[in-house]
Amino acid sequence: MSMAEYLLAEFESQAPVTRKFLERLPEDKLTWKPHNKSMTAGQLAYHLAFVPGGVVQGAQKDQIPPPGFQFPQPASVQEILEAFDKSIATVREVLPSFDDATMNATWRIVDGDKEIAAMPRAAFLRNIMLNHWYQHRGQFCVYLRLLDVPVPSSWGPSADERSALQPELQTA
């Protein structure tokens, strides 16, 4: 299995889990945020939807400028889910085109003539497309909990939902 196929297999297993989280965001809570310094629930959900496709597009280049951190405020959950579907389609289209030589090639973030980061493309995809995605999904999980929305299971059960690996929800 190539490196790209390996990452795609993991991505495919996690995409439906992430969608469950996004679908739980109440329409009337898009502008809610837990703290003044936090993104709104809608901004975080949109970022979660956008990350995989945006990252894999950046990985198509050998170097990119430092990313801007603008988080658009979506008008609806449907807008978030449409962005997510587009992002998923982009990953499915682009990621399989990377052979192992491309995955091992150095990928960079460059600001003018200053190199900010350099790493194998595979490490960039692992760390930002996947690990960064999971980190924001965990952050979004806290938003759902604070909004008193049932939190979906992911790798294991949540307090609200059993996982496929657990036949019964444990109660304390």
Rank of each mutant, 00 (worst) to 15 (best):
L48R: 04
A117T: 03
N131Y: 05
L144P: 01
A45W: 09
E79I: 02
A9M: 07
H47T: 03
A75E: 15
W107H: 01
L147F: 09
S38G: 00
A83F: 03
S76Y: 12
L125R: 11
Q63T: 05
K114A: 09
H132Y: 05
P74K: 13
A101R: 14
E5H: 11
V91T: 10
S163H: 12
P65H: 08
T90I: 08
K114L: 07
T40G: 07
P157A: 15
P152I: 08
D148M: 08
K61P: 00
A75G: 11
P157H: 15
T90G: 03
K33F: 07
F98Y: 05
A75F: 05
A41I: 00
L169K: 11
L165N: 11
L22H: 06
S76M: 09
G156P: 02
F11W: 12
L48T: 04
N127S: 03
M3P: 00
T106F: 03
L22Q: 05
S87Q: 07
L144F: 10
A59Q: 06
V94Y: 09
D62E: 07
E79Q: 14
A75M: 06
G138F: 14
V110L: 09
P52F: 10
E27S: 06
V149T: 13
V55W: 04
L130K: 08
Q43Y: 08
M1N: 04
D160E: 10
S97P: 02
V17Y: 05
F98P: 01
G53W: 10
L95R: 07
A122S: 14
L95N: 06
K114D: 01
Q14E: 14
Y46N: 02
K33D: 04
H47G: 01
E82R: 11
N127T: 00
P72Y: 10
F140P: 01
W155V: 02
L30R: 05
L146N: 08
R126N: 07
R137K: 13
L7K: 02
R24P: 00
R126S: 07
L144W: 13
P157T: 14
F11P: 02
G112Y: 06
T18R: 07
T102W: 06
E93L: 13
P96K: 13
K20M: 00
Q135I: 00
K86G: 04
M3G: 11
T102S: 10
Q170V: 13
D111C: 06
N127A: 03
I64K: 09
F50N: 09
E5W: 06
M39I: 01
I88K: 15
E5D: 13
I128H: 04
L25H: 10
V110M: 06
W32L: 06
G42T: 12
A75K: 15
A83M: 13
L144M: 11
S153R: 04
V56L: 05
A122T: 09
M129L: 13
I116A: 12
L125G: 05
S158E: 03
S154I: 01
V55I: 14
Q57S: 04
A122R: 14
Y46V: 01
Q14L: 14
V77Y: 09
T18D: 00
T18G: 08
K37A: 11
I80L: 10
